[in-house]
Nucleic acid binder design. Structure first.
Lengths: 228, 228
DNA sequence: CGCACCCTTGAAAGAGATCAAAGGGAGTGG
DNA sequence: CCACTCCCTTTGATCTCTTTCAAGGGTGCG
């Protein structure tokens, strides 16, 4: 397999961070690069786990289903993030689904190799553990927010979080494509409610929207809204 | 420091599971045993992290606060469980509080020693990582439930979960003390609502309550309720 | 005995969800 | 180029579940 470089920032790319010296050469023989179109499924909740994924470009939503219609988006993954690590536990099936929100390029590392690496590579294991620890904290914070914050506050919070994570394009828009439906699923509400709240925020000149891109005009106001 | 044994079941006690051979002697020189009375705080959200705790007996609630009045119980810890590991991440403060629900005996291991152990003890690190992975899955499942399930279903689910975790006493009651307020905080609802739902369940002969102990009379019915 | 605190229940208010329907485009076929 | 359909957006109107408020009833304790 050829050793094709990916163009991640070393600071932020989990693959790079995990590729602590001794792992890098080995992993290059075990990773398989490929890409996904917008809307394509990376894996589905309940699928048997066969490996983990590192994203080189694009955005992926990680979501948990409820019945046929409803879902909750647990996390967005972007360039440099890992996806599928939630399958590493005891269960042999993914507890979540992952779907491309925009065209995605990534690499796949089969589980067997990854777990073998974990057994011998202490630094890798440590990095991964810390990563889990962070995600757990995140998750529980979100849980509390979902329970105690009203919808408007949750959406304000989500917008700030997303802006932090994805950054702004030069015209001030959050650098990701996010439909109303996904925003709703992320904030644990319905399409209509998410829509209405967004309309309010536009009226109040707190955000601006064109197409699927969202610009934060007044971050301070959003921070206030978060608190209620 | 003396090497006082604790009386956990080797199968279930995290300290035992983590005490993989080479660690056990070392840890005995670094742990400090003590006990808590009912209602006492083990540590508070925002406190600087100074170590982790292993529970020998009793029950602890791990909770996250919201404002002054509200909280969300993230998890219950019992004999054999770890508490305080959520502080291991990058932040130097606990993201949650821990409070004794009944008299608790436990041992404390200072963070410095624990982290040093993680650096050299691969099996320990691996066990801890898997533990985080499981907790993350749990957390995200709960998150979805909190968003999509109505209160009655959440309470039904909580009762089944608690029964699984704590088991039954010989008279069929769940082997833990759980006030209405804590049940409410655990299921993300208010005292009054939790109370009303419990009353319904009693009327429907699904559960029986005496004092603070709850007995599940009809688990199948609870499982049905979970689904709505 | 009386005060304080929690349990218990009722009634009202509110936030969101659900339902329903009108208003756009964008693509398709005539 | 227009008519038509399909699907997503938008908006209004209900409706339901929960929360909130409030007040009565126990019970333990000083």
């Amino acid at each position: 397999m050829k050793k094709d470089k990916h163009d991640c920032d070393l600071q932020t790319c989990m693959l790079c961070r995990l590729c602590i010296k001794e792992w890098l050469p080995a992993v290059d023989n075990h990773r398989k690069n490929f890409s996904l179109k917008k809307g394509q499924l990376l894996f589905r909740e309940g699928d048997p786990v066969n490996g983990i994924y590192f994203i080189f470009s694009g955005t992926v939503k990680v979501h948990k289903h409820w019945g046929e219609e409803k879902e909750l988006i647990v996390r967005f993954a972007r360039k440099g993030d890992i996806v599928g690590h939630r399958g590493v536990g005891a269960e042999m099936m993914y507890p979540v689904s992952a779907t491309a929100l925009e065209p995605v390029t990534l690499c796949f590392i089969d589980l067997e190799f990854f777990q073998a690496s974990l057994k011998v590579n202490h630094a890798l294991l440590h990095e991964l553990m810390m990563f889990y620890a962070r995600e757990l904290q995140e998750s529980e914070k979100n849980m509390r927010n979902l329970v105690h914050m009203p919808v408007k506050a949750r959406i304000a919070h989500a917008l700030l979080t997303l802006r932090d994570k994805f950054g702004n394009t030069e015209d001030g828009a959050i650098d990701m494509t996010l439909g109303r439906q996904d925003l709703a699923s992320f904030t644990g509400t319905t399409y209509e409610t998410a829509f209405r709240v967004m309309s309010e925020l536009i009226q109040e000149n707190v955000i601006a929207v064109s197409g699927k891109s969202i610009a934060v005009l007044n971050a301070e106001k959003l921070q206030e809204l978060e608190k209620l």
